[in-house]
């Protein structure tokens, strides 16, 4: 699929060492538009809506922040631990800056699946349907997402 100049620039910014040490693409080198198209297909097959899932994850992240870094049980269903650092991260699409707040979210029933999200990763998920490359620490795997959110 053809890459727009914005996508080309974003993929450059997603390389390791540009915005974060590990970058956003994990082990994948395919064009960004292809990664996004693949994950859109998977999310569609699973019946998971990007916006709804991002809203739910953001709610969990904000509830988790109330623990000031300690794990918090939310609605008896999720265990959320947030971590904050000073400073901001720019979006690789150069369309905003985001505080360094991230949350690790898992089911409170002890299942091993977990999702790690940040304000930036939720922005990328909501606006661009970009779930990060496989192998990225912030990869949102659609199947895991569905399982963790209980959708």
């Amino acid at each position: 699929m053809k890459m727009s100049p914005q996508m080309v620039k974003a993929q450059e910014n997603m390389q390791p060492g540009v915005i974060t040490a590990n970058g956003f693409l994990g082990d994948e080198s395919a064009p960004l538009v292809d990664l996004i198209a693949r994950d859109e297909d998977t999310m569609h097959e699973l019946g998971v809506d990007f916006d709804d899932a991002a809203d739910r994850l953001e709610w969990l992240l904000e509830e988790g922040r109330k623990g000031l870094g300690e794990p918090v049980t939310i609605d008896g269903s999720w265990l959320v631990k947030t971590d904050e650092a000073r400073g901001h991260l720019p979006s690789p699409f150069e369309d905003g800056i985001f505080r360094k707040v991230n949350a690790t979210i898992r089911r409170a029933d002890g299942s091993r699946d977990e999702i790690r999200v940040s304000h930036l990763s939720l922005h990328l998920m909501r606006k661009y349907h970009f779930l990060q490359g496989k192998g990225s620490p912030f990869r949102i795997e659609p199947n895991t997402l569905k399982s963790v959110l209980g959708l």
Binding site: R65, L68, G69, E84, A85, R86, R99
Partner: peptide, 8 residues
């Protein structure tokens, strides 16, 4: 401390 701790 962290922004969240400062705010709280």
């Amino acid at each position: 401390g962290s922004p969240g701790m400062l705010d709280a």
